[in-house]
Write a protein that binds this DNA or RNA. Sequence first.
DNA 1: CGGATCACG
DNA 2: GACGTACGTGATCCGA
Length: 944
Amino acid sequence: MAEQQHLYLVDGSSYIFRAYHRLPPLTDPEGTPVGAVYGYTTMLWKLAEDLEKAEGPTHLAVILDKDSKSFRNEIYDQYKANRPPAPEDLVPQFPLIRDATRAFSLPCIEMAGYEADDLIASYARAAQARGWNVTIVSSDKDLMQLVGEQNGARIDMLDTMKNQRIFREEVKEKFGVGPELVGDVLALMGDSVDNVPGIFGIGPKTASKLIAEHGSLTAALDAAPEMKPSKLKDRLTEGRFDAELSKVLVTLKEDCELPEPLDDFKLDGVPAAPLAAFLGKHGFTSLLRRLDGGHGSPSRATDLNPPKQQAQSDKGAPEGNRQPLPEMPPIDRNAYETVQTIERLEHWVERAFAARQVAVDTETSSLDSVAADIVGVSLALGPNDACYIPLAHGGSDMFAEKPQQVPLADAIAALKPLLESDAVLKIGQNIKYDINVLARQGIAVAPVDDTMILSFTLDAGRSHDGIGGGHGMDELSERHLGHTPLAFKDVCGTGKKQIPFGEVPLDKATEYAAEDADVTWRLHQHLKPRLSVEGGTRIYERVDRPLIPVVAQMERHGIKVDRAQLARLSEEFASETGRLEKEIHALAGEEFTVGSPKQLGDILFDKLGYKGGKKGKSGQYSTDQSVLEGLAAQGAEIARKVLEWRHLAKLKSTYTDALQEQINPATGRVHTSYSLVGAQTGRLSSTDPNLQNIPVRTPIGRQIREAFVPEAGNLLLAADYSQIELRLAAHMADVPTLKEAFANGEDIHARTAQEMFGEVTRDTRARAKTINFAILYGISRWGLAARLEVEPDEAQAMIDTYFQRFPGIQRYIHETLESVRERGYSETLFGRKTWFPRINSKNQAERQGSERAAINAPIQGTSADIIKRAMARMMPALNEAGLGHVRMLLQVHDELVFELPEGDVSKASPMIERVMAEAARPAVELSVPLGVDIGTGTSWDAAH
DNA sequence: CGGATCACG
DNA sequence: GACGTACGTGATCCGA
């Protein structure tokens, strides 16, 4: 056997302690705390995945502490006597570590009287003696004694939390001496956690120095009498006994009897069934899905935890509170505290650290998170356990007395460690907003949970309409808590009488602001547990939640626009529309409001008597583009002019005028706001201004893109997925011809034309393109007929041909609809659900509309998942390549726009391309390549 | 404030 | 026999 064996020894006990302190406090569906176990499980998973890698394991075992007593206690009764008891919510997780290990079918070794470290040392040495490499998965400094090479075999360590390998070099860096002397250093310095005495007054620095100088502990102690009189000399002399005792305590026992032979640790794959059972039991749904994705067909990731009953009850009754509601007292606005002193603030911060999760809400002067000034912060730690910290109240009236408040700088300094602590989960409703507001105060809020996004993940498409797509706080509060929170207008008024939040008296402000935090905290209690039960963990944890800080940063970056260019265009469009308006009036024979479709319809069809006027249900003639084009084709000059007028008027009002006003005076840039819950399919949407619909299709419109520019010395880089939705359709519907065409890099519409019509001409390619889109959108003969300007019968014939030439499409449509009818929701390749409550409606129009949307949602949604994954990975990838200053500015569904120094283009382009092209992996292996086109230039237009 | 229109993917 | 026709968005304007 020439193959190099590689044993991995996992220090399970130490891992779980660190995982506990590093990860937010998650609970499983039954309420058992499982945060640390989850961390442990993902770590094992990662190791199992590395199986086939060069440095991956061939053998693996997990080593645990059997009990707290070991032979060291017989030597020294105070050993580890100072250890504080394990935290209350960690204790129940210890036995789960064994369960998790067994679920992976991995050996789990423990032995009474010995610590895990001793077993690890003994196994490591035994393996090394056989010429195996060994990796110890731990960060325990005691184990660093083992690192090094003997017999041509290497022992190293792996810190999976820091993702760091520890070789000899790293040990030397930490201790100043090689691994063989680490025990001596530890013996001198002692360890307060394990209550190893060491020598009083000697810390790590002195210990390293002494051992490095004298070559060993004994030599250092022996040299003491010869030293010149000093404190150090006395300490060494007096501490000799302690040091020698400590040496015994820290020295690993390397010759324990091995409870199981090494060969039994041979890895031989991970059977799925016991693992699935474990993951399912504890609600680790994201892992469950990965398991299924790895072994079953990734394109048909089935829900191993199918909420059958839930899907049934959802039909017709879209509300779904299947979880028993947590018991909570009713909202009591009088229970909230107004925090006005630093002492009280510090008290709240301290309590928040202890609670390890806190709901946070900021109050500001404006709805624009990048421009907004902070006015106050509210925190909630439990039902009715909330406070408001006013920070900038009473500013506008110079003569009025300002209420007592903690000075802003002091409050920020007090809040910063809490809001940035890895160990405390910050919960917000649309927390991207608060992240941006606090970013201006120098606070990088993390880690976060977002109740709005939780709601979206669970309930996208469920029929609760309203602003925010049904995921706004007021709606969520009504729906899940049965409570109506104070509305903003109740405290600030509306219209002209509206006052800024900073002018609201503190008692009222506290009721409003603290209630929002309280409600958010309560919503989190309702929504978070549903995630694992209903299969939302994978999308939430792996796609949407990681995106929050990424999108927040894109919003803060903004993009530079050339105001002068926009102003020039505005003037140009104004004079052109003015000229056209006169000509239109002349042709109409009277003056009227060209922008009024109603007046225009009456003029065209009643006064001028053009044919083809159709009134809609509003009793009004339709005058939209297709109608006017029809009239223009008949030779109606007025229709041509109205079309041109509309084109220019649209560009002026929506873009050249509006964008100028959106330039942030402080940054000189335009900062859009992205909604992560804007589109039912999982796409982002962009508002204030919408930068996802900047003109591109006409030459005149493209002039507006020329106004989007980089800073001096920089370029804009646009990277877009080529035909991503068609590629996904080819994969998901498993269409051989299309997959082959994409694999060969063919022009897909031309290939479609060839298949459909037997020849590729301008006309057949255009028709093929229309048909391809029709497929993605859920086809109907009438819709296609209208687009292609043919009879419905002919359109139907084309559809039939399409289905015949591209087998798989019809089956995909059928299976998708069957599944949605049955379960109530559609699903992307990554498990994002979109609900279709009207899919079984008796109203045909409603039902058919849902059917078309349901055919499209998995495709559009998968595309959205993929670009979101690319976005989440982009900055880490660029950072790693030393390209951290490349700025990702915009996302337009299948396109990402970056700003970067000219000199970085050649290095960044292939990197960006790779991250985007690889974004589906490893969760999903597509059977078509993802193509990415990249361009750069001195404007957004030029970058295309 | 709803409808019509049109900008984008 | 009538229904009413492509998926997903957001901004602006008109007119009630």
